[in-house]
Write a protein that binds this DNA or RNA. Structure first.
Lengths: 331, 331
DNA sequence: TTGAAAGCGCTACCAC
DNA sequence: GTGGTAGCGCTTTCAA
């Protein structure tokens, strides 16, 4: 490959200085005469020179890239998270190297391995991976920030405040007079699903110890919400409120109820979690999460960690906000 | 930074061979004795060696990464596109380097510049950037694939088959007996909006030359759909079908019609474009686009181009599929 | 089949 | 301040 691209040497030659000086100018070192700087820069300009990143990385052992490993996600959650990360990363002069990690731990390992040497740190969201599997798959010696993942003793960790959100939701339902509140949960291996479910139980136990507690386990999608709601229907719908573990499940519930001509919210209240755009259109009561903010924060922490600040390995919680809409409205 | 990571030299020493042989083994060159290979591999194993990517890149002038530059996108479209790209990229042994490019051309230039040397090629979607601006911002000498972007003489280009989708839609409406079909278009500077609008006109002219043609220009959002529909309402709703340029506009139309107590689809049929999740929920007739497939295809073409196949600079169209639902149902 | 060595382009240390 | 230069870790001729 004799791609004769201009190198730092060409610039040095044209400017009449050494490569060392050119390098200094390019990296903003202060020990350079303004005159030198000017000459070098004009040579750079004239040649249309651009530094070779790989060479620089080899020299500095820095890539200025951040690896982002996420599960197979859909829709708004994914795009919001990426938006937040991208914004923070550009601000800090980092690029994002993205890859999906599927449920399979060994594949996740391959993906993470492929990032070795390409990134200065990794942000990983692996709610489906056990702590041990994850730690095993992660390249050693690279700063890591966890998002919504189990464990968190080894790395800084960001989590959605599922407990706060779900507690507020249960309180809201109770306050609006609901007595038989059922929770449609996601798969409980998923940490968010687990926490929301736990928070539901705890909130019920604390706020309304005499009322029945019931959890129907499903998965984080619309079809699951439909199926679980149909099963309630088969029982004669012995509840007056359905709190789903996320908005998609709530959507499934709404559809099933509508098809069965059960009035929402008059007969049954329905609530979700996440506040996807859909929720607003459907006037669905839900819990909003600042996903973009969470992504940005993850980048911030990681960059700090890359820069050597071994500050704290503590877990931070991304605040949530109860949004009450029509589906839990009147009664 | 004396991070004493094991290098190829350590492996060579332990295996009792030269670095050249280790390199050959690692790169699967055939001219190595099985015995040699075995010894090298066990040394690799023993040391937990992993090649330094930057060094390899410097040597080979290959990064095995693809740059992806997208506008600030929301929701399903973004995540689907990324999913498709990620899948294809992993399959081909590439990683994705992602960055948003905002409307500002100079910022877009910076982003693209930052990718130089980090990627072997770029996939760019810049419907908002003029062809000249884009070409100016793009690093020279790097393979590029365009998605939904103006121009396309310089690079292979992928586009949504707006024409096919809209034509099928118009045909469907005509077949179901609609006679006065109005099109709510997006801003016609947007290439998709323009094409859909043009396809509507052409399809009407070809399939029903005697029927009236009418385009109301708006923008790709719900509020615009509402506003345009209200203006039709003010005229006494002189149409029996509304084809919006996307689902959000159709949603706006639906809401306005519902508020005005105009029966859908009995009195007026409504259709959208994109098949966002909302469309399914609202039972909205629309045109589905295989976004993930489009992303995967873009990667395929780019990788081929990186590999030196200077095949065709032609534009490919991502197929669409008419999805008929209740909003254009009976009559 | 294997090894020695010349780069790849850049940074940073050490002299001057 | 500036220049020379030794690596950074790898791939790939060219010889043996």
């Amino acid at each position: 490959m004799t791609e004769s691209v201009t190198t730092i040497r060409d610039v040095a030659r044209l400017a009449g200085f050494s490569v060392a000086s050119v390098s200094r100018v390019l990296n903003g070192h202060s020990t350079v005469t303004p005159a030198t700087r000017a000459k070098v820069m004009s040579a750079v300009e004239a040649l249309g020179y651009f530094p070779n990143i790989a060479a620089r990385s080899l020299s500095t052992a820095r890539t200025h890239a951040i690896g982002v490993a996420l599960p197979d996600m859909h829709g708004e959650f994914f795009s919001e998270l990426m938006r937040g990360m991208d914004r923070a990363a550009s601000d800090q002069g980092y690029l994002l190297l993205l890859s999906n990690i599927h449920a399979d731990a060994s594949i996740a390992g391959q993906v993470l391995t492929a990032m070795r040497g390409r990134v200065d740190g990794i942000i990983i969201m692996a709610p489906q991976l056990a702590e041990g599997e994850r730690e095993n798959a992660l390249p050693r010696g690279l700063p890591v920030v966890l998002i919504n993942s189990p464990g968190g003793q080894e790395h800084p960790s960001l989590r959605i405040d599922n407990t706060g959100g779900m507690t507020a939701m249960v309180a809201h339902l109770l306050q609006s007079g609901r007595r038989t509140i059922v929770h449609l949960s996601g798969m409980l291996e998923n940490i968010d699903a687990f926490e929301r479910q736990l928070a539901y139980r705890n909130a019920m136990a604390r706020l309304a110890p005499d009322l029945p507690v019931r959890v129907l386990e499903g998965s984080f999608d619309e079809a699951s919400g439909e199926a679980l709601t149909r099963s309630l229907l088969a029982e004669g719908m012995p509840v007056d409120a359905i709190v789903a573990a996320n908005d998609m499940m709530a959507l499934g519930a709404l559809q099933t109820l509508r098809a069965a001509n059960i009035a929402v919210p008059d007969r049954v209240a329905v609530a979700g979690f996440d506040d996807v755009p859909l929720a607003r259109y459907l006037d669905l009561t839900t819990v909003a999460v600042d996903i973009a903010g969470l992504g940005a924060r993850a980048v911030e922490i990681l960059v700090r960690s890359i820069s050597g600040e071994t500050a704290g390995l503590k877990t931070e919680f991304c605040q949530t906000r109860l949004i009450t809409r029509a589906t839990t409205g009147g009664r």
